[in-house]
Design a protein around this nucleic acid. Structure first.
Lengths: 152, 152
DNA sequence: GGTAATTGTGGGTAATTGTGGGTAAAACAA
DNA sequence: TTGTTTTACCCACAATTACCCACAATTACC
């Protein structure tokens, strides 16, 4: 399971260095083959080891074309899925199109999220985070049932 | 179960010494692997032995991506979960990002909380504590049913 | 109360990691 | 083809982190 947080910079060529503590796993897991695609829920990117992505892909294939949300999710995630590999310095090259989607500027953050990594523009992430923290903090909102029964 | 209170200092490199009476348990429990993450309820940090964290992680993994609150909770807790180990002096290095989140200055406190430790900035903790004591004391707030049936 | 052991704190140094940029190969367009 | 842009590969520097060692403060013990 991937976890953890790092602040990183996207250089002028659109490259992003994966934190070193994750490199070995990423380069061994599927011969170093990775898949980068967009996160349809947020303006951020997802980075999967190929083997994990293939599993996702089969699940996507099962989504009905007659359900609008399902169709769109499929289109987006598959359509933007880009193969990539770590270079000798442990970086990946993020295509222009995906950089635009996630509105990546110079500063980015990368978050371990179980079977994948999530990549955000730093400012956008902070905004999201603070918004969420506010919601958790005030007790006015209704936590979902799943959350209500969660003891950490 | 962890319990107890200690005042400690965070040095200029962001290191925090775990009280010695807890070291042995922390370094033996899961080969010394620990996970440090943020406490989404308060501006403080949680320190889990890896084995305890993994249990939390599986619970988080079950939350749906299509429920916004669940998704955010997952993102935050996993995203900020940082692997760490005690160094030769029994300290952990707290990443800048987490220090900022918990607003840790020079003085910190660490509280045993069952399956984990909670780490606060000392001043922030005192403030919180006094505030809570006031609230608990006056009977204006509505205690939940669970609390109502609690005999201490 | 005095001494010895343990614990908490600080800092130096070496290794690792993150970042930037140069150059050559490859892809693409005209 | 030729010229232009993009990508891959390499090298180098700066910042961070891990690993030591040393001292001060605290605690335990006689």
């Amino acid at each position: 399971m991937f976890r953890g947080f790092s602040t990183l910079s996207v250089d002028s060529k659109g490259r992003l260095a994966v934190p070193s503590r994750h490199r070995e796993r990423l380069s061994s897991e599927t011969g170093g083959c990775l898949v980068l695609t967009l996160n349809p829920m947020d303006r951020s990117l997802w980075l999967y080891p190929l083997i994990e992505w293939e599993f996702i892909e089969t699940k996507l294939a099962e989504l009905s074309d007659f359900d609008k949300q399902g169709r769109r999710t499929k289109q987006m995630m598959r359509g933007y899925a880009t193969d990539c590999q770590l270079d000798a310095q442990g970086r990946i090259l993020i295509p222009q199109e995906l950089r635009d989607y996630a509105q990546l500027k110079k500063q980015a953050v990368i978050l371990g999220q179980g079977n994948k990594f999530e990549i955000w523009d730093k400012a956008a992430w902070k905004e999201q985070r603070d918004q969420w923290l506010e919601q958790i903090g005030d007790d006015s909102g209704e936590p979902s049932d799943a959350l209500r029964s969660l003891s950490l």
